[in-house]
Simulated assay, not measured.
Amino acid sequence: MKTTPEHDEGVAKMTFASVYPHYITKIEKKNRTLDELHQVIEWLTGFDENKLQELIVEKATFETFFQEANLNPNAHLIKGVICGYRIEEIQTPLTQQVRYLDKLVDELAKGRKMEKILR
């Protein structure tokens, strides 16, 4: 599934700080913890809690966020549909990486076991 250039640009310019509170709300509603959220983010990006806070304070865009990330070599195993897009078919690498993160947060919120989330 192809995304539009406008969609990809919107994703790239969005700040991690603007989305992070939504991740927290989503997982806490389903009785998951902030520690679990941070574990999932660290698995995907290599960012520990201190680095996440630094990126939030800097108001880093997703473009910067993923440029600085050390993407997990198993990230390509994240599959499924998120926001109407099949992740494995997204052709723009940055948009795909953001959707990887969205999918992991979704799986966490849906109660999936951590060992399944962290492929």
Rank of each mutant, 00 (worst) to 15 (best):
K79Q: 06
L52E: 13
Q67V: 05
R112M: 09
E115W: 13
P73W: 00
I24W: 04
L118F: 05
Y20N: 13
G84P: 01
A60S: 15
E28L: 15
E54R: 11
K13W: 00
I41D: 02
Q53A: 12
A75R: 11
L44P: 05
I41P: 02
Y20S: 09
T45W: 01
I41W: 08
K59P: 02
G46S: 03
T15Y: 00
A75D: 00
N72A: 10
G46H: 09
K79V: 09
E58A: 15
R32M: 01
I41Q: 02
T33Y: 05
G46M: 07
L101W: 07
K30T: 13
W43F: 14
E88M: 11
W43K: 11
G80R: 09
K51F: 10
M1Q: 12
H7T: 02
G46D: 01
N31V: 06
N74S: 11
F65K: 06
M14W: 07
I117C: 06
L104K: 11
T33G: 03
A12T: 05
V11M: 09
E58R: 15
T92F: 08
E54S: 12
D102V: 03
P73I: 06
V57T: 14
N70E: 14
G84Y: 02
T15P: 05
D8P: 01
Q96A: 09
V81G: 01
I82P: 01
G80I: 06
R86D: 10
E63D: 15
L71K: 12
D35T: 14
T95F: 06
K113N: 06
K103L: 03
K113C: 01
T64P: 00
M14P: 00
Y23F: 15
I24R: 08
I27T: 11
F65Y: 13
L118V: 10
T61I: 07
K26N: 12
I117W: 09
I78M: 03
T95C: 02
K2R: 14
G111D: 10
K79R: 10
E115A: 10
K51Y: 10
T33V: 06
V57F: 07
